[in-house]
């Protein structure tokens, strides 16, 4: 008897504690989990013009597996995402290190400035890179005006180079956030002790900084790799015809002429699966290197 009332009360208390969690949880289930599931189910359907036909067909996946166009686009997307992440994460690591250990108090102000840029104009900043890197853009016209070059540098715009430069600028603040917060848990004493014992800088990085900031580095890599691979606005505005990414094709399947939602859904899931598999592979590799 007392046991049951005890349990009932515990459940009652759990109910009270859970109450503030309910609205957001429900919202996440209905508008995040269910849509993902719906997208997955849709990838096995067929489309006839704008009419979606329920089915259980692997045609969409087969089309993706056998098409060399999609293969090229997926490989290019992963390469661009990987290069971007490989630049963003070490850069964010260096920025976080300087803010945390060189300018301790002023580091906070700089962190605020970096975060502010995260919220200031996604479309605007991509467009700005087009005007900076363009053939008659700011960089080329300045260099010509100064007489440093006589013909515009063409590789600056409509290229994978432009995409990586733009994405790095967009994703850097997002990568600084987790790395800096992981580093704020590292005591300065560890570094000083190691330095006093004569450890060179690269040993400090490999044996103290990287292992202790690893959770932050992991999150930063996930942010950079996943979001770079999923962006379609950047390749649209600064990429050329030879640098379309899979996101462009997926976006076109949902909002374009001759769109095909089920095929777009299948493309999205194939890309997500490959990106996630690579992400876990890289994480294994990093763990192996740091424990070694």
């Amino acid at each position: 008897m007392t046991a049951t009332t005890g349990t009932a009360r515990r459940w009652g208390e759990a109910g009270v504690v859970a109450r503030p969690l309910l609205p957001a949880s429900l919202f996440y289930v209905v508008f995040f989990a269910v849509p993902m599931l719906a997208l997955f189910v849709l990838s096995f359907w067929r489309a006839n013009g704008f009419v979606l036909i329920p089915d259980l067909t692997f045609d969409n996946y087969e089309k993706i597996a056998t098409s060399s166009l999609y293969r090229v686009l997926i490989i290019r997307t992963i390469t661009v995402g990987f290069i971007t992440a490989a630049i963003v994460v070490p850069l964010a690591f260096a920025v976080s290190y300087v803010m945390r250990f060189v300018f301790e108090t002023r580091g906070q102000v700089i962190l605020q400035l970096i975060l502010l840029s995260l919220f200031s104009g996604y479309l605007v900043r991509i467009y700005a890179w087009r005007t900076i890197l363009g053939k008659q853009g700011l960089l080329n016209s300045t260099l010509q005006w100064l007489g440093l070059i006589d013909r515009p540098l063409e590789f600056l715009i409509y290229s994978n180079f432009a995409i990586v430069i733009t994405l790095t600028g967009l994703l850097l603040p997002l990568a600084v956030l987790p790395i800096y917060s992981a580093m704020s848990n590292i005591s300065r004493d560890y570094l000083e002790a190691a330095r006093d014992l004569g450890a060179p800088a690269h040993t400090l990085i490999r044996t103290i900084l990287v292992p202790m900031a690893l959770p932050g580095l992991r999150t930063a890599f996930a942010f950079a790799f996943l979001l770079a691979a999923g962006d379609f606005v950047t390749p649209t505005l600064v990429g050329g015809t030879q640098s379309l990414l899979i996101g462009n094709v997926i976006a076109d399947q949902f909002r374009g002429i001759g769109s095909n939602w089920p095929l777009g859904a299948a493309l999205a899931f194939v890309t997500i699966a490959i990106v996630l598999a690579l992400y876990f592979l890289v994480m294994r590799l990093i763990r192996w290197v740091t424990t070694w």
Binding site: P35, G230, F254
Partner: peptide
């Protein structure tokens, strides 16, 4: 962490 593109299209599907 999920690309906005995927969130956007999945909501459109829902």
């Amino acid at each position: 962490v999920v690309p906005l593109l995927v969130i956007g299209i999945s909501l459109a599907v829902l």
